[in-house]
């Protein structure tokens, strides 16, 4: 078992002689990002009296829950060398299903489980099509973006307002300090993912598939099953994000979540993930990416900077992230 873990670990890493130099370089980049991040917070705190207020910190954390969960699922898929463009549609689907089920007077836990299984099904379908027929993840999930969105509108053309008040309050009531249940769920998800990716065979296999799929196959690992698993995780995360978002907004619009996949991909990339497979990207880095994107939004709102600049800055940060991590070939 341990032997297999080690071999998988090696497969997921950057191969060849440059390994140690490359690793040191990457670590440097990670540290400098961390430094830039803290500098950003310091500057922000010193210039805005509101930034460190309990309310603002709570706002910031609640605001990153959706993108946090989606990015986590996206990371797992990106680690296999794939991508999941359908997450935004899955968010809408689960948000509208959970609201619809609640209004059909189903008990809350059952409504949530049904909404989550919608995400699992969507993910399983994506993963099956990709691994069974060797189709490109970009194309398959591009197709399901529209298909799932269409299903959302078939389910309900009009927005659904969940009538059960407890659904709205349960996730947003502070449990301790600024932490609401929705924030704790997201943080727990990151901890589980940290353990899953680094300490379980399935997690290591997923990372290794992104490094060298053929080698993983030769090591006797069922590649197909692990790819399906990765997309199921992504679908599940997106569905969970949808449930929490419906609770947070108090209304589920069928048009919800359009473009969410882009922020998730951005968070993964800022966190060091490489699209198209091959090393880089971790749970902590992705969390940093999510937090950075959330901070940009929050700070520029507090400083009353026009939203167009938010978009520009977002783009600049993404470009810098990939530039700094570019390997010197």
């Amino acid at each position: 078992m341990t032997n297999l873990m080690d071999r998988l670990r090696a497969m997921g890493e950057i191969p060849l002689v440059k390994m140690s130099a490359e690793r040191i370089r990457r670590q440097w980049v990670d540290y400098s990002f961390l430094g830039a991040f803290f500098l950003l917070i310091l500057v922000a705190a010193s210039m805005s009296d509101v930034f460190f207020s309990g309310q603002n910190i709570s706002n910031l954390l609640r605001q990153i829950v959706t993108n946090g969960l989606i990015s986590l699922g996206m990371l797992v898929v990106i680690l296999t060398g794939g991508i999941d463009l359908s997450v935004g549609s899955v968010v809408a689907f689960s948000a509208i299903v959970v609201s619809g089920m609640i209004n059909k007077h189903l008990p809350l836990p059952i409504a949530i489980v049904i909404a989550l299984s919608v995400g699992v099904l969507a993910g399983a379908f994506n993963g099956f099509m990709i691994s069974r027929f060797k189709l490109q993840p970009f194309i398959v999930t591009l197709a399901t973006v529209g298909t799932i969105r269409g299903l959302v509108y078939v389910y309900s053309e009009t927005p659904i307002t969940p009538l059960d008040q407890s659904f709205r309050t349960i996730f947003s009531t502070a449990i301790f300090g600024p932490f609401t249940l929705s924030i704790l769920i997201m943080l727990a998800a990151f901890l589980v993912a940290l353990f899953f990716i680094n300490r379980t065979t399935a997690g290591r296999a997923i990372v290794a598939i992104g490094g060298n799929e053929e080698a993983v196959r030769l090591a006797g690992i069922n590649v197909r099953r692990h790819i399906i698993l990765a997309y199921i995780i992504s679908g599940l995360c997106a569905a969970l994000a949808g449930v929490l978002l419906a609770s947070r907004l108090g209304i589920a619009q069928p048009s919800l979540g359009a473009g969410f996949e882009l922020d998730a991909i951005a968070a993964c990339v800022i966190g060091g993930a490489t699209l198209g497979g091959g090393g880089g990207g971790g749970v902590l880095g992705t969390f940093g990416g999510v937090l950075t994107l959330g901070l940009i939004n929050n700070l520029l709102n507090l400083f009353n900077v026009q939203s167009y600049y938010q978009q520009i800055l977002k783009g600049v940060i993404i470009l810098f992230a990939v530039l700094a991590r570019r390997s010197n070939r």
């Binding site: 603002n56 706002n59 947070r248 907004l249 969410f260 929050n298 709102n301 507090l302 939203s307």
Partner: peptide, 18 residues
């Protein structure tokens, strides 16, 4: 600017309340 996203509009308003 909510950028056409209900969740972002919600966050923006929270920021302004803060």
């Amino acid at each position: 600017d909510g950028g056409g996203d209900a969740a972002k509009l919600n966050s923006d308003i929270e920021d302004l309340i803060a």
